[in-house]
Amino acid sequence: MFVTAVLVFVGVYHIGDPAQLLVAADAEPADVERMTRMLGLDRPLYEQFWRFLSGLMRGDLGHSFIYGEPALKLILQRMPATLELVFVAMLIALAIGMPLGMYAGLNPEARLSRAIMAGSIVGISIPNFWQGLVLIFVFAVTLQVLPAGGRGEAVTVMGIRSSLWRADGWAHVALPALNLALFQCTVVIRLVRSNVREIALLDYIRFARAKGLSRTRIVYVHILRNMLVVLITVVGLQLGSLIAYSVVTETIFSWPGMGKLIIDSVYQLDRPVIVAYLILVVVMFITINLIVDILYSLIDPRIRLGGGEKG
């Protein structure tokens, strides 16, 4: 986190001059200088960074130049929309990727399996932004069955505020979630297929076949159960990727999440929001990886955090 904070802060410091954007186009140099002093941008870089670190220790990531509100508050206000999108995208990726990956792994020589793997290569190769535009053109413009952008109205149910409590919310999230999920779906397919092929060749699977167990029991009891560690890996690592890579999708579909906020902040040179967003994403990645490691030890008894037994 410290290294990230240094790299991000120094990198953002050298991008443009926010004071020039906050004053009128015909402003005098004195007005620009006054705005620079007001924002604290006239101080040396090391002093600005020290103030940032001091605030970070107190949970204060600075105030937005544009909105005049705490940067962390602005991000947390947009976070529910992003988590909504990521949650639905992950469900789609798993619902499509797991069955297709298992089928391709259990039937590697079938024509359908080869078609699935060829499709996964195409899915990885398609640019995300172009794919989003195609989805909008087909489903929103041509067929007119789904909205092209925006988020449905959020309501509170059981203390949880979300747009997914209403059918309109699902209609709005469908296209951006599908766009975000398609790339992840191809990753899930390829990862699941390779692991199924590996597990299917192990000795205990051969022994289960020799005992006369049915194919269904072997798949759902032995293979699928041993896929839990892989599934946790997929969900954990891809969840972090979905949060980080939702920027393009949120921009294309005008989804009011953290990704849309960071793009707007880059255009407006809102440095505190940019730095706060990137620091928060790093924290989320670290937290998700920690949870994945803990779940490993709970699901697979062969994995231990403390090493082997003492003699």
Score class of each variant (00 low, 15 high):
Leu53Asn: 01
Ala27Lys: 01
Leu45Trp: 04
Ala27Gln: 05
Glu33Lys: 06
Phe52Ser: 06
Ala24Glu: 13
Glu47Arg: 12
Pro44Glu: 11
Pro44His: 12
Ala19Glu: 11
Trp50Ala: 09
Tyr46Asp: 08
Leu22Tyr: 03
Trp50Cys: 00
Arg37Cys: 00
Leu21His: 06
Leu53Glu: 06
Val32Gly: 02
Leu41Lys: 12
Glu33Asn: 07
Ala30Gln: 15
Leu53Val: 13
Leu41Ser: 08
Ala27Glu: 10
Glu33Ser: 10
Arg51Phe: 08
Asp26His: 02
Leu21Gly: 04
Leu41Asp: 06
Trp50Gly: 01
Arg34Met: 08
Val23His: 04
Ala19Trp: 03
Ala24Ile: 02
Ala25Phe: 02
Pro44Met: 11
Leu56Asp: 03
Leu41Tyr: 07
Leu41Asn: 06
Asp26Lys: 04
Phe49Tyr: 15
Ala30Met: 07
Met35Pro: 00
Trp50Thr: 10
Gly55His: 14
Arg37Gly: 00
Gln48Arg: 15
Ala25Asn: 02
Gln20Trp: 01
Met38Thr: 02
Ser54Cys: 07
Asp31Ile: 03
Pro29Asn: 14
Pro44Asp: 10
Arg34Val: 00
Ala27His: 03
Trp50Leu: 12
Gln48Trp: 12
Arg37Ser: 07
Asp26Ile: 02
Leu39Tyr: 05
Ala27Leu: 04
Leu22His: 03
Leu56Ile: 03
Met57Val: 12
Arg37Pro: 00
Gly40Lys: 14
Asp31Leu: 06
Gly40Met: 14
Gln48Tyr: 10
Leu41His: 06
Glu47Asn: 03
Arg34Cys: 00
Leu56His: 06
Ser54Phe: 10
Asp42Trp: 10
Leu45Asn: 03
Gly55Ser: 13
Ala19His: 07
Trp50Arg: 11
Met35Ile: 01
Asp31Trp: 03
Tyr46Asn: 04
Val32Cys: 03
Asp31Gly: 01
Leu21Pro: 00
Gly55Val: 11
Leu39Arg: 08
Glu47Met: 10
Glu33Ala: 15
Val32Asn: 05
Arg43Leu: 08
Ala30Glu: 15
Ser54Lys: 15
Gln20Arg: 13
Arg34Pro: 00
Gly55Arg: 15
Met57Asn: 05
Phe49Thr: 09
Leu56Pro: 02
Met35Ser: 08
Tyr46Thr: 11
Leu41Phe: 07
Arg34Ile: 00
Ala30Pro: 00
Val23Gly: 04
Arg51Gln: 14
Ala30Val: 07
Leu21Asn: 08
Arg51Asn: 10
Ser54Thr: 15
Ala24Arg: 09
Met35Leu: 09
Met35Gln: 13
Leu53Gly: 01
Val23Gln: 06
Leu21Gln: 14
Gly55Tyr: 15
Asp26Glu: 15
Gly40Cys: 13
Val23Ala: 09
Asp31Phe: 00
Arg43Met: 04
Phe49Cys: 04
Arg37Gln: 12
Val32Leu: 14
Trp50Val: 12
Tyr46Trp: 14
Trp50Ser: 04
Phe52Arg: 11
Ala24Val: 01
Met38Leu: 12
Glu47Ala: 10
Gly55Glu: 15
Gly40Ala: 12
Gly40Gln: 15
Glu28Pro: 00
Gly55Trp: 15
Pro29His: 11
